[in-house]
Design a protein around this nucleic acid. Structure first.
Length: 154
DNA sequence: GCCAACGTTGGC
DNA sequence: GCCAACGTTGGC
């Protein structure tokens, strides 16, 4: 089993939205970055654990845990001209964009803000893309050691 | 709202 | 294949 972190803007879709969904499960659609797609499509497995990160908000940080509920399948919003993430170059016969389904596991007992995580950028969290300046990747791998360390901050 | 960092596009 | 222009992300 592998560990991941995925970002979302809580004003658009936050962890409380996920927890309120039927089966507490939701397709993680709209990823339009090749590196993020490749990880979802090629590496994510059902049961993988994922940290839910709130970006573009008052206090960005990790707020909870979810898990992969369904492995990668084509993202239908890419085919829908009405959808925000429509991509006319994604051919239904050869889809360009993929998504996984995620299921809510739990909130953290407290949110762990990015500012706090950055304190360990040269130590236990060295190599975690999240704490590197200018990182924009919305799906990123977390090592077991990083995972345990972060949850130890909870 | 600003802007640095980064990814993508498209002309050449 | 290069790289300038552009659009987006996301912290602050």
């Amino acid at each position: 089993m592998a560990y991941w972190l995925m970002k979302s803007e809580p004003d658009v879709f936050g962890i409380d939205h996920l927890a309120a969904r039927p089966n507490q499960t939701e397709p993680w659609d709209g990823v339009r970055n090749y590196q993020a797609r490749n990880m979802m499509r090629d590496e994510m497995r059902v049961g993988d654990q994922v940290m839910f990160y709130h970006s573009n908000t008052e206090e960005p940080g990790i707020v909870g845990i979810m898990e992969v509920a369904r492995a990668a399948y084509p993202d239908p919003t890419a085919f829908d001209p009405e959808a925000k993430y429509y991509d006319p170059k994604s051919d239904p016969d050869d889809p360009r964009w993929f998504m996984v389904d995620v299921r809510y596991v739990r909130h953290l007992r407290r949110n762990i803000p990015l500012t706090e995580l950055k304190q360990y950028a040269d130590g236990p969290l060295a190599g975690l893309p999240l704490v590197r300046k200018g990182n924009r990747l919305s799906v990123l791998p977390v090592t077991p050691e990083q995972w345990d360390f972060i949850l130890g901050l909870e």
